[in-house]
Simulated assay, not measured.
Amino acid sequence: MRLFILGLGYSARHFARKFGGSFPHVAGTVRDPGERTDLQDIEVHAFSGSRPADATLERISEADVVLVSIPPGSNGDPAIAAFGGVLAGRHRKIIYLSTIGVYGDHGGAWVDEGTPPQAAFERTRLRLAAEQAWTDSGYGNVAILRLAGIYGPGRNALVTLRTGTARRIIKPGQVFNRIHVDDIASAIMAAIEHGRGDTFNVCDDEPTPPQDVIAYAAQLMGVAPPPEEAFETAEMSPMARSFYASSARVSNAKLKRELGVKLAYPTYRQALDALWRAGEGR
Results as ranks from 00 to 15, higher is better:
Tyr216Ile: 10
Gly107Leu: 05
Asp77Glu: 14
Arg249Thr: 14
Ile100Asn: 02
Ile94Gly: 06
Glu131Gly: 05
Ile214Asp: 01
Ile60Asp: 11
Asp112Val: 03
Thr56Tyr: 07
Arg249Asn: 14
Asn177Lys: 00
Phe47Ala: 10
Asn252Ile: 09
Ile214Val: 15
Asn156Asp: 03
Ala148Ile: 09
Arg127Pro: 02
Leu255Met: 15
Tyr96Arg: 00
Val159Ile: 03
Lys254Arg: 15
Ala234His: 06
Gly73Lys: 08
Ala143Arg: 00
Thr163Trp: 00
Arg2Trp: 13
Arg277Phe: 07
Leu145Cys: 01
Leu259Thr: 09
Ala143Met: 02
Asn141Thr: 08
Ile95Val: 14
Leu87Asn: 14
Leu158Asn: 06
Glu232Tyr: 09
Ala63Glu: 12
Arg90Gly: 02
Leu220Tyr: 03
Pro238Cys: 14
Arg13Pro: 06
Thr233Pro: 10
Gly9Pro: 06
Gly85Asn: 03
Pro207Cys: 15
Arg282Ser: 14
Gly114Ala: 15
Asp183His: 01
Tyr216Leu: 03
Asn201Gln: 05
Asn201Phe: 05
Gly152Tyr: 02
Thr233Lys: 13
Gly104Asp: 00
Gly154Ser: 04
Glu62Tyr: 11
Met221Ile: 03
Gln132Pro: 08
Gly114Pro: 04
Val44Gln: 04
Gly154Met: 09
Asp38Glu: 15
Asp183Ser: 08
Val261Ile: 14
Phe19Val: 08
Gln174Ile: 00
Val261Gly: 11
Ala46Arg: 06
Ala119Thr: 11
Val68Gly: 02
Asp205Arg: 05
Ala133Gly: 07
Ile184Gln: 01
Ala81Met: 04
Asp105Ile: 07
Val213Asp: 00
Gly9Tyr: 12
Ala79Asp: 13
Gln219Lys: 14
Leu57Glu: 15
Arg178Ala: 07
Glu58Arg: 10
Phe121Asn: 08
Ile184Gly: 04
Thr99Cys: 09
Lys254Glu: 10
Met236His: 13
Ala46Thr: 10
Gly34Tyr: 11
Ala217Phe: 10
Arg123His: 06
Leu67Thr: 11
Leu87Trp: 12
Leu255Gly: 11
Glu113Arg: 11
Leu3Ala: 14
Ala278Val: 09
Ala130Glu: 03
Pro117His: 00
Ile214Phe: 01
Arg241Tyr: 13
Pro24Val: 08
Ala274Asn: 07
Arg277Cys: 09
Gly7Cys: 13
His45Gly: 11
Gly279Met: 12
Gly73Thr: 05
Ala253Leu: 06
Leu6Ser: 10
Ala278Met: 08
Asp205Cys: 10
Ala245Leu: 15
Thr124Phe: 03
Cys203Tyr: 03
Pro227Ala: 05
Ala46Gly: 06
Ala16Ile: 12
Ser137Phe: 03
Ile95Gln: 09
Thr199Asp: 01
Leu272Tyr: 13
Glu113His: 07
Ile214Trp: 01
Asn252Phe: 02
Gly84Asp: 13
Glu232Gly: 05
Ile80Tyr: 01
Leu128Asn: 04
Leu97Tyr: 02
Gly149Phe: 10
